[in-house]
Design a protein around this nucleic acid. Sequence first.
DNA 1: GCGACAG
DNA 2: ATCTTGTCGC
Length: 225
Amino acid sequence: MFDFKRATVVQRILKDKVSIASFEGPVSYVAGCDLTFLNPFKTPTMGIASFVVLKYPEIDVVEKVWVSGKVDIPYVPGFLGFREIPLLLKAYAKLSQRPDVTIVDGHGITHPRGLGVASHFGVVLGIPTIGCAKKPLYGKFEIPGMEKGDFSFIYDDVGEKIGVVLRTKTGVKPVYISPGHLINVESALEIVKNLVVSYKLPEPTRMAHNFLQEVRKHIRAEIKE
DNA sequence: GCGACAG
DNA sequence: ATCTTGTCGC
């Protein structure tokens, strides 16, 4: 079984490698990634990962890839990276067009030890990443206004600004954005805002998710007959 | 000791 | 995160 005690040590080491700085250079391609499981409650189980690369800021699809494989680490809050990163790396390796920034489904530094899946993934590859989660995990914040565009910042226990709660759609639950690696809160917020169209989730994340539903449907059809 | 806890 | 239809509200 997986040793979460040692995993904590690994997280503390990797956390020191996370770089938070304003994003420099042009952003021409942005990617979104996601994972789905045949049975998320069983371990091991089969997982499927996807990456969708979009032209920025046009939001035109450039490339979509997916891979499947065995996932043998269970989901435990605070250790999502160890469960999802192996497949994410496998999928990322199939990309022809490397993104300038990658949005990961989960938290970045808004994590108990400052190393959510987005930061973990970013450090492993040494690439810029942004965490975009659907539920809070760590940090203090005020509930933002109900209109699309309303937001409030997330702070850690020493008052450091580590993320932002953004209402991406009027009257709908907000998303939690934070730097993963090689970016800061302001740049992360700016990029995500430009990728939100008319749904709760930014397009890269949404498309990576929808693409997986399609793939999983086809895979299960093959397994039967 | 108790509650909270991304996907 | 998965399995699933209808239904209520803007």
